[in-house]
Write a protein that binds this DNA or RNA. Sequence first.
DNA 1: ATGAAAGCGCTAACAG
DNA 2: CTGTTAGCGCTTTCAT
Lengths: 342, 342
Amino acid sequence: VARGKRATQRDVAELAKVSTAVVSYVVNNGPRPTSPEVRRRVLAAIEALDYHPNGFARGLRAQRTNTVAFILYDFHPLDSFTSHYLGPITSAIIGDLTEHGYYLIIQPLKVGEDTASVERLLHSGRVDGVIMRMVQDPDTADHLPGLIRDSGLACVSIERQGHPDFPAVVTDDEAGAVAATSHLIERGHRRIALINGDPRFHTAHARERGFRAAMAEAGLEIDEAMIFYCNWSSTEAIDATRTLMAMPEPPTAIFCTSDDMAFGAMNALTFDGYRIPDDVAIVGFDDAVQAQHLIPALTTVRIPLTRIGTLAGSLVRAAIEGQPIDPIQQVLPVELVERGTT
Amino acid sequence: VARGKRATQRDVAELAKVSTAVVSYVVNNGPRPTSPEVRRRVLAAIEALDYHPNGFARGLRAQRTNTVAFILYDFHPLDSFTSHYLGPITSAIIGDLTEHGYYLIIQPLKVGEDTASVERLLHSGRVDGVIMRMVQDPDTADHLPGLIRDSGLACVSIERQGHPDFPAVVTDDEAGAVAATSHLIERGHRRIALINGDPRFHTAHARERGFRAAMAEAGLEIDEAMIFYCNWSSTEAIDATRTLMAMPEPPTAIFCTSDDMAFGAMNALTFDGYRIPDDVAIVGFDDAVQAQHLIPALTTVRIPLTRIGTLAGSLVRAAIEGQPIDPIQQVLPVELVERGTT
DNA sequence: ATGAAAGCGCTAACAG
DNA sequence: CTGTTAGCGCTTTCAT
């Protein structure tokens, strides 16, 4: 490994016949001016030596790392990234940060796992800020945000407010669920089932709240046996759907609180010979890219997934640069997209 | 931001009444021994001051960063992570690395984008090694591996050999495709369509080679109009399937070279009233978790996705630690899993 | 506008 | 077994 022969600032300084300070000024365009002539010489030397500043030396000296950590709590090796929710959000975060010269370190944390690895990262001086996604899990939920807070790092949470002091990017899930449910009711459905995600997630709660509110508003009774919690996965949604359809009085519509689960429900229904939407109507949640290309195309609640990621990225960057963030909680709107399943 | 008051090694040394060297020995368990008594005192001081070593100072001094970069070429913000192929692999890489005390920086690179951002990372001294996934794209394909090579960093490529010098983790895609196709032929199918991925990917090539070989072996004619390239996406696979079934003599079986595409094909088929496998048989490729829970469960070629990631992780780690890697190309076996779609 | 030099926090070689 | 100290490569203050 030929790491030893990398050119340093000093090499550049010698070749350009200037001091290392000037090299620094040229590389960083400041904080002090340099004469055009000197600047030219330095640039030439940099080119000639293929000089690249050392990020760690820079970070050590300037106390700035240009790196943020994305802490993924409740990490599931097999499907965390495959989900149509977290995947696009993560991509968008990476996109925003990379574009602005920041690096992203992904730090997973499984439920029940010791937080030592996270603490090590937080205190290692390797990151300037943190993006986190919190789950309402009593074990760690109260613990992790406190750790981050104590680290003094800039932090923004997505999906729900992780700590009163952290800026958060959230979506109006309850309103979305109300819109989805009301839409179904308007179409004449009265027996509506709910296939919900993991109730430890704030979004699952909010979406269920919206569902219940809309049903109550319309004076409709909710059959509690028609409410399922499927951990956001299409697999479990398939089972729930079949259980639902085997009931003496099956639902005429199913509201799935994620597109992944809606995909599963549609798969089971279509295979078992039901027509969508004639026999059973489906509404999803998220508006994954695939939703509009499914057959039939899925009616769903659009969440600005990309926007969540880019906003989270720009907010950490702002927080790192010491800018005040107001309002502390950014609520992104959500919108019902009517397509072919209702 | 209360970063200034973080305890340093020196603070610990003073409190424990030892030198900084000893603190270092205790923290790193070496390279030289310390007496139990001193060790205890140091540990107590560390605890008391909530001391955490600074990663950048460490990296700067020891020339070791404990970080690896995952370079994602052909990055697509909306679906790179959502894919049932790259998602699990990425998760597994993160899992392996995190478990062994390494951090992972994800560095995306879009097709046609300037490689400056990647070069900056490679030369920044922020990473000890690189994992990369190469696409056979003439523009950058010849360029990127050279850059990495010149950086002198440890590198392993996945999916195909990125450079003759790089260790690679690959799968026996051609054999898998042969198995899938032969299986279909054994079931009596003669008009078999191929829905393939993006031909710029090595895996797409290999899988098509296997398909053609198996067909030739059985003396079967391939109808070139029945070969589609769908960029690995279920969306495009839906269109291809419908085009296929609208032909005067539609295929009786479709081999999809990814499960994502198989999901799309199944969706279109089932919705349009075809029975799987009676009217049309389907074979996928990858064995995503969902494949076995679909209805009907998908017959597919199992790729050890998790193993690809953990092996890639352990190989970069080995390369970073200077261990020789032999053989340079690790070919992982692949296996046909017969389920309900054939 | 530039140079000299003091560290940032750590590891490891050198010296007991 | 432990202390002293020289840097790792950079930014920035203090000089000029």
